[in-house]
Nucleic acid binder design. Structure first.
Lengths: 128, 128
DNA sequence: CTACTCCTTTGAGTTAACTCCAAGTCAAGC
DNA sequence: GCTTGACTTGGAGTTAACTCAAAGGAGTAG
C-alpha cells in the first residue's frame, strides 16, 4: 500500500505519516526497490492503533516506548501489558474528571434556563 | 487577594494567570493604587472555572468567547447557554470515544495476560 | 528526450499555550 | 536613604506536534 492510500484511509497527511515513522511512533515501513514506502497490513494496523490512541490523548512518548518494547520481542510482554494497564488507568481518571465537569456544565445550563425563563415571564407581564 | 496567593490556591503560575488575563480567558483583574493585581472572589471563581474547563480540554477560544459574552450582559444569556450546551455535547462525544478506546485497551490487556499465562505454562512444563 | 507526477530526504517553519526575561515601580525594613 | 522583594509591563523564548519547503530520483505519457 502506498503512502497516499494510507493517508486517505486514515485521514492523516503524508507528512504526518512520515513524521510518525521518523520519531518511532510506528515501526519503520519497508521501501520498494525505488525507495518508496510500501505499507503492509501490519503497518496499517500500527497506523490505525496510533491514530486511535493519540485521538484520546495518550502521550506520544508512551506510544513510542510501546513500539520500542514491541520490537524487542517476547521478553517485554509483561512490561507492555503494564504500560497498557497504566494508560487504561489514566484514561479512567480523565473520564471521571470529565464526568464531573459535565455535571457542572449541566448545572450551569439549568441555571441559565431558569434565568432565561424568569426573564420571559417578566417580559410577558410588562408587555400586553 | 494577591497574585501569589491565587497562584498557590489554584496551582497555576503567576505567568499563566497574567497570560490568561492578557488573552481574555478571564476578565480584567482590578489593580490597587500602586498598580498591583487584587483578585476579588469573583476573579477567583473565574480562575477556578477556567482551570477546570481547560483541564478537560475545552478550547481556549471558546472560553474567551464565553467571557466576552458574559461581559456584554443579559442580552447574551441565550447564546452563552447554547455555548455551554455545545461544549457539553462535545465532552459527551469525547467520553464515548474514550470509552471505546478503554474497551479496546482492556481487550489488549486480556490478550497479553493470556499470552503471558501460556508462556508460563510452557516454562513450567519444560523446567522441572 | 522532455515533461509530469509522485515519491524521497533533510531541515526549516508554524501554532498553541505557555514560560521566561529585562527593565522598571513601589512599599517595607534597616 | 538604600536595599530588598514582590509586583508591573511588553516582548522574546520554549515545547510539542505537526506542516511545509527545497532539492532530487523513479516511472510513465507524449
Amino acid at each position: 500500500m502506498l503512502i497516499a492510500e494510507v493517508s486517505d484511509k486514515f485521514d492523516l497527511s503524508q507528512d504526518t505519516l512520515r513524521y510518525y515513522e521518523r520519531i518511532g511512533l510506528i515501526p519503520r515501513v519497508n521501501r520498494n526497490k525505488s525507495g518508496i514506502r510500501d505499507y503492509t497490513e501490519e503497518d496499517c494496523r500500527w497506523v490505525e492503533f496510533v491514530k486511535c490512541m493519540r485521538g484520546v490523548g495518550l502521550p506520544i512518548e508512551v506510544l513510542i516506548e510501546y513500539v520500542e518494547l514491541f520490537q524487542q520481542g517476547d521478553e517485554t510482554l509483561e512490561v507492555r501489558k503494564q504500560l497498557l494497564v497504566e494508560q487504561h488507568k489514566q484514561l479512567l481518571s480523565r473520564m471521571e474528571e470529565m464526568k464531573t465537569v459535565m455535571e457542572r456544565l449541566q448545572y450551569k445550563i439549568s441555571a441559565y434556563e431558569q434565568t432565561i425563563g424568569e426573564k420571559e415571564k417578566t417580559l410577558n407581564r410588562t408587555s400586553p
